[in-house]
Design a protein around this nucleic acid. Structure first.
Length: 411
RNA sequence: GCGCCUGUCGUCAAGCGGUUAAGACCUCGGAUUGUGGUUCCGAUAUGCAUGGGUUCGAAUCCCAUCAGGCGCCCCA
């Protein structure tokens, strides 16, 4: 018999991992709802076309990373991200008639067919937020605040927020033209990746890691274009206001002109939150504004902004693993009596186990000390007197009390 | 899709061409006749990812396959 193993790029989230996952989920609910966001759960697969139109058919995600399958002549795809799905649901359920900012948050598995490596899996989980209906930068500020405060609630403080503005489609196109124009003379000297980027996504050229390319980019005439404030007046004002809000809230951030994001739908504000402790996949959070996505997917003209975080990456940073012990373990030579006592406590909400395999007294105590906080000794003496000996396994203190007082003893 | 590295018990591992394939932890059994975590004894890989080769002899060398890790691309 050959072993069936978890598939490449997938992982079991085991009982030892649960405390961290529960923390991430509980805090998402708690923090995001403070901002008025409501949870939404959308299907794990959608029409392939949703992602092609939503995420953008020039992106890697859509071109080579989707899990697509055919069923009854429909092309379906496992969601590689959740913004498109949430927008689809927003439109389909007429949420544009709700009072306007509509704030939604989600968590769940996403699927991307890539080579797994540190901080990257084929099935992974994201928590994210989408805010619809506000074009003003107050929404940008609030969304960034939600992200930062959520991370803080998880004890993650030393993360850096990077910010950029992509401008609107008009000013961005103009910038692309400028950039391509100055680079044209050097095109043949760029690395093959950069040559395809030149055609496909010129903005991505800038963070190429090949030294020869960097050398070319550092030429004065090219630097001038890169560093120029190419965005139009309106976009610039939007960005400045956002920065002002963040300054007033004392949120630390840095401007990264090279921050572009790989999904086609972004405009104006884009941001990432990074950690230095994650290896090469260092972004825990990525997000931005997508003012034309709702319309592009067939809805009203409604602006929106959101972010997503990789939960496995968060879990790695939070770190702490903690096996939760059961509260009580009944030690007794009478299984029937042990079962009765255990049930009494379980009814009162106390987690309780007892020996299911007729072990000797010493072995039962040993088992108790490994798995529980208290040993409840129920021997002949105790049974005769309707009492229980409660032993605290951490400090070895023990006390014999009446049966009905057991639960107050172990709080 | 490309590059580099790795594959010995549930886990961490020693081993470097001739060993009965160390050791530790976990698990399980036993001893100490009702008190553990901190005692003692014992059990647990006929096999070193798989398939071929080289050799008198291979976990140890070579090749292929598979699996895992890391990096590039891209992304959370």
């Amino acid at each position: 018999m050959t072993m069936i193993k978890a598939q490449k790029g997938t992982k079991d989230i085991l009982p030892v991992d649960m405390p961290v996952w529960h923390l991430m989920e509980k805090n998402a609910e708690e923090i995001f709802s403070r901002y008025g966001a409501k949870e939404i759960r959308t299907p794990i697969f959608e029409a392939t076309e949703l992602f092609a139109r939503g995420v953008g058919d020039t992106t890697d995600i859509v071109n080579k990373e989707m899990y697509t399958f055919e069923k009854s002549e429909r092309s379906l795809t496992l969601r590689p991200e959740n913004t498109a799905g949430v927008v689809r649901s927003f439109i389909e359920n007429g949420m544009h008639r709700l009072p306007m900012p509509v704030k939604l948050w989600y968590k769940g598995p996403m699927f991307r067919y890539e080579r797994p490596q540190a901080g990257r899996q084929r099935q992974f989980h994201q928590v994210g937020v989408e805010v619809f209906g506000i074009k003003q930068p107050t929404a940008d500020a609030e969304v960034i605040l939600m992200a930062v405060n959520y991370l803080k609630s998880l004890g993650l403080n030393d993360l850096s927020v990077e910010l950029n503005s992509l401008g609107c489609p008009e000013c961005r196109d103009e910038f692309k033209l400028h950039l391509k124009a100055v680079l044209r003379p050097y095109l043949k000297d760029l690395c093959p990746d950069c040559q395809t980027r030149y055609e496909k996504n010129p903005l991505r050229l800038l963070d190429c890691k090949v030294p020869e390319c960097q050398e070319i980019f550092s030429k004065p005439e090219i630097q001038e274009v890169i560093m120029s404030d190419f965005i139009c007046e309106e976009c610039a004002e939007h960005f400045n206001e956002l920065k002002k809000y963040l300054d007033e809230l004392k949120i630390n951030y840095s401007i990264n002109k090279l921050l572009v994001r790989g999904l086609d739908y972004y405009n104006r504000t884009v941001f990432e939150i990074k950690s230095n402790n994650l290896g090469s996949q260092n972004a825990v959070c990525g997000g931005g504004r997508y003012d034309s996505l709702v319309r592009n997917l067939g809805g009203e003209d409604i602006p929106a902004i959101g972010f997503a975080m990789g939960m496995e990456r968060l879990a790695y940073l939070i770190g702490e693993k903690d096996d939760k012990k059961t509260t009580a373990f009944v030690v007794s030579n009478s299984p029937a009596e042990a079962l009765k006592l255990a049930e009494e406590l379980r009814k009162d909400g106390i987690s309780c186990e007892f020996d299911l395999s007729n072990k000797k007294f010493v072995k039962q105590i040993e088992k108790a000390s490994k798995t529980a906080k208290y040993a409840l000794i129920l021997g002949e003496d105790e049974l005769a007197a309707d009492k229980v000996t409660v032993k605290n396994l951490e400090n070895s203190e023990q006390k014999t009390v009446f049966r009905q007082n057991v639960k107050s003893e172990i709080i």
